[in-house]
Design a protein around this nucleic acid. Structure first.
Length: 412
DNA sequence: TTTCCACAGGAAGGTACGGTCT
DNA sequence: AGACCGTACCTTCCTGTGGAAA
């Protein structure tokens, strides 16, 4: 009997090397940045007090990859020259306040069975615990704070950059490496924190098309069999990646999605057509995830705008959207949020790229207002908001966009 | 030049909730 | 148990804005 599952390796050699977590042995296309970074880390090996380093650049430009790569090398060197060095990495994704960051760091330094709860402690206690944990270490301690811009206040940075001066820590030499996706983050910091954290600044510019191409080629060599990729595939991935802001991570994911698509279709090789379709899927998936995560009233607001779009009534000014939104709320007997609140939903949508909006100025005869329109297919939004729509009943204007059985929902 | 429209969006503060501490 | 803490999500209040009208 032929086994149902058979090894399927006509395309991939090592598909895993296209995953986000994979750290390549060699970093491509970031030579200048690596050089600067190395120089900034050098004092550590000399046994000097480490400089604080601030790294910034958009997502997927190699900040984290280069950091991990160099810190690995640094630890190797430290071992070799018998330098006492500890590296602590804290990813601030999912943390929004200094308080959470401080607790996370404490837990990072503790054994799992001694972790403290994420809420409820007085601030002062959390910092006391943190200093205690740090004082248990010795030699040079490097704390890497990845995605540091997710933290909205700078108490944590203030505390930690001043910890030594204030005598909270002794016995160790503390160095910080802050990694930020947001280049404006630096300016928002308190002046004292800024001068301290940003002793050395290294900026990572977006990858250009050529650099992306190099990165992709490097990965494709390990991941795919020879001649598994048609000629235009990598250039196209690079070009699309460049359009998406020079994000290598996304370009690599795109290549993997294209490969997966080719594999499911039992194609002999990955073609540019696979890449294009993968790109579409990727975009749709992204906005889908975002829309599903919106709160009830955010979804209703988006739904209101969507019905207006279906009626060809967009761009629509905020008060028109609010009117429609209020109708939906009243229809379902739910309390509408204030217009001010809904306006902030709309401005969030724009940040999330779900909508586009523009200010209009009509002088004395109309004042200032903002007009909004959808930046996604109506069908995609309707699909993502399925659950909400079925609960509220489909508006007549969007019946035609419903998957198949429009009758399932009571039309409004 | 000044006035004034109709909002935009920042700031401050309130409330419910889920957690800890003593 | 009840004081205390931080957060998410709201509302209220209010100053800012660009250009047509006066």
């Amino acid at each position: 009997m032929t086994p149902r599952f058979q090894p399927d390796d006509t395309l991939y050699k090592r598909r895993n090397t296209l995953k986000v977590e994979y750290v390549p042995d060699d970093i491509v296309g970031r030579d200048n940045e690596i050089e600067e970074y190395e120089a900034a880390l050098q004092p550590i090996i000399n046994g000097e007090y480490p400089d604080n380093i601030f790294i910034y650049g958009k997502t997927g430009v190699g900040k984290t990859a280069v950091t991990n790569f160099l810190l690995n090398e640094l630890q190797e060197s430290a071992k070799h020259f018998e330098v006492d060095l500890s590296v602590i990495t804290l990813n601030c994704d999912g943390l929004s306040t200094s308080y959470q960051a401080a607790i996370s760091l404490v837990n990072n330094l503790r054994e799992p069975e001694h972790h403290i709860a994420e809420t409820g402690h007085p601030q002062s206690k959390v910092y006391r615990l943190l200093w205690d944990e740090l004082n248990n270490l010795s030699g040079t301690v490097i704390i890497v704070l990845d995605e540091i811009d997710h933290i909205t206040d700078d108490t944590f940075l203030y505390q930690i950059t001043r910890a030594d001066n204030n005598g909270y820590i002794d016995n160790i030499q503390l160095g910080l490496i802050g990694i930020s996706n947001d280049s404006t983050f630096r300016e928002q910091l308190d002046a004292k924190v800024q001068s301290s954290l940003c002793e050395t600044e290294i900026s990572f510019p977006p990858y250009g098309t050529k650099e992306l191409q190099k990165v992709l080629e490097q990965r494709a060599d390990i991941a795919f069999h020879q001649s598994a990729l048609e000629d235009g595939v990598i250039p196209l991935c690079a070009a699309l990646g460049r359009q998406d802001g020079g994000d290598a991570r996304r370009a690599i994911t795109l290549l993997r999605k294209a490969g997966d698509l080719a594999r499911t279709e039992n194609a002999d090789s990955v073609t540019t057509d696979h890449v294009e379709r993968a790109q579409e899927k990727l975009e749709a998936q992204q906005s889908m995830d975002i829309m599903r995560d919106l709160t009830e009233h955010e979804q209703l607001t988006l739904y209101a705008l969507t019905t207006l779009a279906a009626e060809d009534a967009t761009p629509a000014r905020s008060r028109v959207v609010y009117q429609r939104y209020k109708e939906f709320c009243e229809y379902q007997g739910r309390d509408p949020r204030t217009a001010r609140r809904m306006r902030s939903f709309l401005s969030d949508f724009e940040i999330l790229n779900l909508t586009l909006s523009q200010m209009e100025h009509r002088g004395q005869d109309g004042g200032t207002y903002r007009e909004h329109e959808l930046n996604r297919d109506i069908a995609t939004v309707v699909d993502a908001l399925q659950t909400t729509i079925s609960e509220f009943g489909a508006h007549r204007s969007i019946i035609e966009y419903l998957p198949d059985s429009g009758e399932e929902f009571a039309a409004m």
